[in-house]
């Protein structure tokens, strides 16, 4: 097991390095550069300004030189400087990354808490009115665009009922408050984005849970377990659900891997200070350092969660071994 993990970690590192160079090259191939954006907003910028700025930013260097310069900076523990915001990347990204994690993990937990029991019940009551209702709920979640749901939630809870804020991350200007009050304030701003994000995830997890459970409950070992006189819920959870876990682990770990970038739309609609929109903007505005750091985090998360999924397969199913 240890050698398996070490081997996979090494492979992960190699993949990260190769992909980072590939992505860096792709970014340089995109039309425009940060200086280009300055020209668009200021027609008074002269050709001398353009040449000077390109030299200063190192944009006149070949891609591989720029890439190695970037790697050198990263290796020194410096994430670089954002050309859009004119601040160090760590300064702008750190707090936003935490906010996104809080938003994504909260919505993930909420969606799992709702989707798994509903999915199991729908599978056990397949073909009944209850199953149709749960399926309708799931399909609605999958098909309703999150930005639309977000706007509807804002209109209902912020504009009409005035019980939740329309957008933001916390109340600006709150002074002399306790940590608990601060947490409550933050929670108030999380409710609507979490709901809009979770609803889509509920739909997906619910459908996967239902189909995996349906499949698992048809197996011979379920009949055997029932014949052994085990209680209904022991059969369902101990035998059925455990065997349904494998496909669920794949979907859930992959969803965790994408929490980083998955909240972009919700963050934009709710003006939530997350990293999703930052990543999008950095790619659009050729803010290389921000884009590359976010890319690195994203790739690392996908690879690490893949590894976690592989490990969890073994935990869920003892028949799986690692060599």
């Amino acid at each position: 097991m240890t050698s398996f993990i070490l081997r996979r970690l090494f492979q992960t590192l190699v993949v990260i390095v190769l992909l980072s160079y590939f992505c860096y090259t792709l970014m340089t191939l995109m039309p425009g550069d940060p200086v280009e954006l300055m020209i668009q907003s200021n027609p008074k910028i002269t050709s001398e300004d353009v040449t000077r700025l390109r030299q200063l930013y190192g944009l006149d260097q070949p891609t591989y030189v720029r890439y190695f310069n970037w790697v050198k900076t990263i290796a020194q523990g410096d994430l670089g400087y954002s050309r859009t915001y004119r601040v160090p990347v760590s300064e702008i990204m750190g707090p936003k990354l935490i906010n996104t994690m809080v938003l994504s993990i909260s919505s993930m937990i909420l969606s799992l808490l709702i989707a798994i029991p509903l999915g199991v019940i729908a599978a056990l009551r397949a073909g009944t009115r209850w199953d149709y209702l749960v399926n309708f709920f799931a399909f609605a979640g999958i098909s309703i665009p999150s930005f639309w749901l977000g706007i509807v939630l804002i209109i209902i809870f912020a504009v009409l009922l005035h019980i939740l804020p329309a957008g933001g991350t916390f109340t600006v200007g709150l002074e002399n408050i306790t940590t608990f009050q601060m947490l409550l304030d933050r929670a108030k701003y999380l409710i609507l984005p979490v709901l809009s994000l979770a609803y889509m995830e509920i739909g997906i997890f619910l459908r996967f849970t239902r189909s995996a459970m349906l499949e698992a409950m048809r197996n011979d070992y379920i009949r055997t377990a029932k014949a052994k006189g085990l209680s209904y819920w022991t059969v369902v959870w101990g035998h059925g659900f455990r065997n349904a876990l494998l496909p669920l682990i794949t979907v859930i770990t992959m969803s965790f891997a994408h929490v980083f970038a998955g909240a972009t739309i919700s963050e934009t609609v709710f003006a939530y200070q997350g990293v999703g929109k930052l990543v999008y903007d950095s790619i659009i505005s050729n803010d290389f350092n921000v884009a590359m750091v976010s890319f690195m985090i994203s790739v690392t998360m996908v690879l690490v969660f893949n590894l976690i999924a592989d490990i969890l397969y073994g935990v869920a199913d003892p028949r799986i071994t690692y060599k």
Partner: peptide, 12 residues
């Protein structure tokens, strides 16, 4: 950032 929700923010 979303111009679509600007009006809702103003009204709320």
């Amino acid at each position: 950032p979303n111009t679509g929700t600007l009006e809702a923010n103003l009204r709320s």
